[in-house]
Nucleic acid binder design. Structure first.
Lengths: 220, 220
DNA sequence: AAATGGGTTTAGATAAATCTAAATTAAATA
DNA sequence: TATTTAATTTAGATTTATCTAAACCCATTT
């Protein structure tokens, strides 16, 4: 099991998150995601290609291969276990864990992570509702759909939120939407794609399309 | 509170440990400690002097000033809290925690460390018996003496071991010497400075001077 | 098919941390 | 005090990760 630099790991993780399903990732997308410059991305892609972690032909975009995916899942496992630890044991609030885990995830001692996993009782999801890969890199494919796709008047349980900036988390807290919240979409407006939702017996209220796109529910 | 690179932190910590009491640290000592080259040490000393963390005149050795000491105590606090966490919560064995903590200590998020401290119940010493600085950088001055200084036939309690290589810890484990062990020096030999010690009602056995110099007991 | 323009890559520079080899200083010795 | 030697510093090179600016590719549009 080779070790990768913090910078390499950040690139690998970002590619994993961006490549979703079948597509490839472009230089600009990645530069934007990592708040770096396209030239830096190209340099790193050459390096990761040389390390055989991704498929990359100049001008054609890139995609993690099997080895790269395995590495990415290891990083995500560390990140999500630390998030769980921070929320569950250290009582960090939901919107603070991501940032701290960004640093902790780069400490890559397998025994540490496996023992942490055991200490935490082998949690299946992190505080945002995202599945945690196991020690072998296996991850539950979460059958989740965005509430923008949810039929009207159907109660569903919030299982995760995708954007993990503290801004969105602050907003969700204000609206009292969290993992496990039961909600129902009452109305959608074509004009701005905003929607009215209801939580339990509380009055109906409005959320923007931008926010709705980041809220997911379990679809089993 | 400024941030320092992993490399800077390793230098600061090493100086702190080497400078003991009143003396200064030399370039070679530090290079040896950090397994680096004297030229690299000189470069870093210029940098740390520019950051006003130490007193340094070319060819005269160096010593942390107040700010440098404060930074060092922060690093040591993080290191020892993680060691405690690893031993107490993750059930790492005594001789494994140091190495893992070497990585974790560089994650320098004050809130993380203060919450970890609280979660652990504000431990006073790490698994090696060394005191943990509090959130303000206060550290108990441990009144400990080396067993080489201990008068004969005086029972004392092992409170810490200084060298934290896995080699010494393996040897201590074999000899059944650990923090809290009650022992008594029965005989010292001038020739090789080896000594015979007794633990509880077990038969007397010999330890080398090299080992003895790393075993400390509380002297209150 | 030629031109345009956005996305991408290359070229060359910079900063951090390290190294080797050479020069320098200070302390010990003759 | 002059000399030797060991420790230390300087000079210059290397690696990693980044940047800016210039060059390049290619798909879409005239």
């Amino acid at each position: 099991m080779l070790n990768y630099s913090t910078s390499e790991e950040n690139y690998i993780k970002a590619i994993f998150h961006l490549q979703k399903q079948d597509g490839t990732v472009t230089t600009n997308e990645l530069a934007n995601e990592l708040k770096t410059k396209p030239a830096s991305v190209t340099d790193m892609m050459k390096k990761l290609k040389a390390k055989k972690l991704l498929n990359y032909q100049p001008y054609k975009g890139f995609r993690l291969n099997n080895d790269g995916t395995r590495v990415a899942l290891g990083i995500i496992r560390r990140h999500r276990l630390w998030e769980y630890f921070l929320a569950e044991k250290l009582k960090f609030s939901w919107d603070e864990v991501h940032e701290v885990a960004e640093d902790l995830e780069h400490v890559s001692n397998k025994k540490l992570i496996d023992k942490l996993d055991e200490f935490l009782g082998f949690p299946r999801t992190d505080p945002h509702g995202d599945p945690i890969p196991d020690a072998n890199g296996k991850i539950e494919i979460s059958r989740k759909i965005c509430i923008t796709e949810l039929p009207l008047h159907t109660v569903a349980i919030v299982s995760s939120v995708s954007d993990q900036s503290s801004e969105i988390l602050e907003l969700l807290e204000h609206k009292k939407i969290t993992i496990g919240t039961k909600l129902e979409v009452k109305k959608k407006f074509d004009f701005d794609k905003s929607m009215e939702i209801r939580i339990g017996r509380h009055p109906v209220f409005t959320i923007s399309d931008r926010l709705a796109q980041n809220i997911f529910v379990q679809s089993n």
